[in-house]
Design a protein around this nucleic acid. Structure first.
Length: 211
DNA sequence: TAGGCCATCTGGTCCT
DNA sequence: AGGACCAGATGGCCTA
């Protein structure tokens, strides 16, 4: 979705690599020399990018090719582990965000892009609710103060407990809920609505360009 | 079977 | 020098 669209943009702008560099997981074990590991011609920067100097890891002091190979392999392994850990942290943050977002069945886990879009619209809906607060008194109170917020000024959702369930959770209150409706055709979130005991609010993000 | 989503590997670049 | 960040490539899994 994302990456494909980005690729098309690159293609349209003539920035697509002429021939994608082969990406073999076993590249390090294929006995490539130091020179082979340098940038391929299609990867070398051109134009303004030439100002950027490569600052690759220096292995010039290592003469023994076997040792050199081991050192590079070790560095790659460490970098891979760091990257894995980084992505896991990113996914953990997305999971936390999913838990905060209200009113989605447990068995329908939002994808990453959906999570970001729903969060975007959710924030927008809350902002609208606050903006209309004067003429729509009660809704904002219900969101930020009614169920678990110690300090309304912080506007930080509580984790929610049995006694004080999180206001961001669908199950927090049978009498009030927040929903984001998804278009079946596009899977984009088209509209958001807020419903409480005596009041309701429905709107559409004015600039829903989070795609 | 095509397409979407995801995890992982990888090299380049930036930052400390 | 080493870690963080980023984007491209790849392959596996799942679903319509």
């Amino acid at each position: 979705m994302f990456s494909k669209a980005d690729s098309f943009e690159y293609e349209e702008q003539g920035m697509m690599l002429e021939s994608p560099p082969p990406s073999s997981p076993d590249r390090d074990s294929l006995g490539q020399s130091e020179e082979d590991m340098e940038m391929s011609p299609t990867q070398k920067p051109s134009g303004a990018d030439c100002k950027r100097r490569s600052r690759g890891r220096s292995t010039k002091t290592i003469k023994n090719p076997e040792v050199l190979q081991k050192v590079k392999k070790g560095r790659r392994q460490k970098a891979n582990n760091r990257e894995k850990n980084r992505m896991h942290n990113l996914n953990s943050a997305l999971d936390t965000l999913r838990q905060i977002l209200p009113c989605f069945p447990d068995d329908a886990k939002l994808t990453k892009i959906e999570t970001l879009r729903v969060a975007h619209n959710y924030i927008w809906a809350l902002t609208e609710t606050l903006r209309l607060g004067d003429s729509f008194s009660g809704v904002a109170d219900c969101i930020f103060m009614g169920k678990g917020f110690q300090d309304p000024g912080l506007m930080t959702p509580s984790s929610g407990t049995a006694d004080t369930p999180s206001p961001w959770s669908c199950s927090s209150s049978p009498s009030s809920s927040y929903t984001c409706a998804s278009s079946p055709a596009s899977s984009d979130i088209d509209s958001c609505s807020w419903r409480s005991e005596n009041q309701s609010y429905t709107g559409t993000p004015a600039q829903n360009d989070f795609s």
